[in-house]
Design a protein around this nucleic acid. Sequence first.
DNA 1: GTAGCATTCAACAAGTCTATTGAATACTAC
DNA 2: GTAGTATTCAATAGACTTGTTGAATGCTAC
Lengths: 239, 239
Amino acid sequence: MGSRAFKEGFYGELAVLGKALANPHRLELLDLLGQGERSVEELAREAALSVANASAHLQVLRRARLVEGEKRGLRVIYRLAAPEVFELWRTLRDIGGTRRAEIDRLVQRYFTDREEFEAVDKETLLRLMTEEAVTVIDTRPEVEYERGHISGARSIPVEKLERRLAELPRGVEVVAYCRGPYCVYSDEAVRVLHRSGFEARRLDAGFPEWRAAGYPLASGFTEENRVARVCSKAVGERR
Amino acid sequence: MGSRAFKEGFYGELAVLGKALANPHRLELLDLLGQGERSVEELAREAALSVANASAHLQVLRRARLVEGEKRGLRVIYRLAAPEVFELWRTLRDIGGTRRAEIDRLVQRYFTDREEFEAVDKETLLRLMTEEAVTVIDTRPEVEYERGHISGARSIPVEKLERRLAELPRGVEVVAYCRGPYCVYSDEAVRVLHRSGFEARRLDAGFPEWRAAGYPLASGFTEENRVARVCSKAVGERR
DNA sequence: GTAGCATTCAACAAGTCTATTGAATACTAC
DNA sequence: GTAGTATTCAATAGACTTGTTGAATGCTAC
């Protein structure tokens, strides 16, 4: 094999990876899978795709070995094929955020008041948590919390926060986190909390970044939260 | 702006980056630019592209803000737009190498005897260098050496090595390096050196990885090398 | 077995990407 | 100015990518 033939094969195979990253929907699917495994239907719903289209995009990601799917009963559950895949997505996302003014403008327009309140970084949050000087809330949908969350956090999905403010101890600062630096849930939560007189900040990263950094995790519902959850479900059903 | 509109814009802008990585020639151009800046013509020649085609691919990379070009006289000199761009390329390359069996097979077939001699890692090389227990040779073309090299290395492009063996002190181990882990120059150099009775190993990384790790660099020709280079040029011209 | 569901496959039209050509631009050196 | 060079631009044909349909597969539960 000549050197040109090798290079063509080598860069060609790597371009399969690049091609997998060359479509907005596939990037969104990777981002979602960074939160935890999901079925095709869930992914399709979250990314606003038809099931057939989501399935087709997932095959492209699968052929590039970025995700893997496993049949469980009726469903096929997809997940990231390795932790490095999250690193690849994060590198791409962060280079986009710092180097492409178009993205920065978009983010500025959408996250209008982000600069107003300084965010907490992972290390600071860990310190605050060991000092027990903080309440940590996970503002993502409950299923994502169940599949993994920051150890000691409680699940309060952002759309339920207003109704569940009573669960939060007064006089303790709240730190809210969500899917990642470009996810809006924690910004929204901080806004609600400020309006209700809480001291609140958002984490400058999301659950996947926390996990990738090797910080403490938990999964499933904690006893405290399970109670809260059952109550809030009951409240929901009563209407 | 609704949340779906934001997401579409956000992932769409990031996909511009992904698209830039979705073509084998563009990946090769990024890899080459990782060695140092170059004109369109040089890049076209090295990547076996027509100048017009290379230029077109470079515009795609430029629009994605991965490279930047600067007019100097008649030429346009391109370079990576930021050190992070090398990290992005490296992440993609390394995930390809570890996750895609197709690439691994290709590499195994081309680098037949790579496993035979264990490679040196960056840290070990640095230690050997401070102990002055090693001769380091840069086996890349001279222009690349001139634009930046490992501090203390001497330039012996691989195709001139056989004629220039006399320059290397006997009884001292040689470490050869080149463009990166998938570049063949240092493997070839180690083979030649072994045949000629030297103790020799390759560095498991290339110049860009050494630089990215913040290890000591130099650029231009050292006095010792300039002499050797002038001599070898003279020899070349005499034929 | 049959019904029902989640996912994938196959075919297709519309859109996008690629390499090549040859012409246009922008600069240098005289 | 003129000639010469490096790069880019514009047009084009051919090859891939995308999203949609509707049908096929493969599984579960009865």
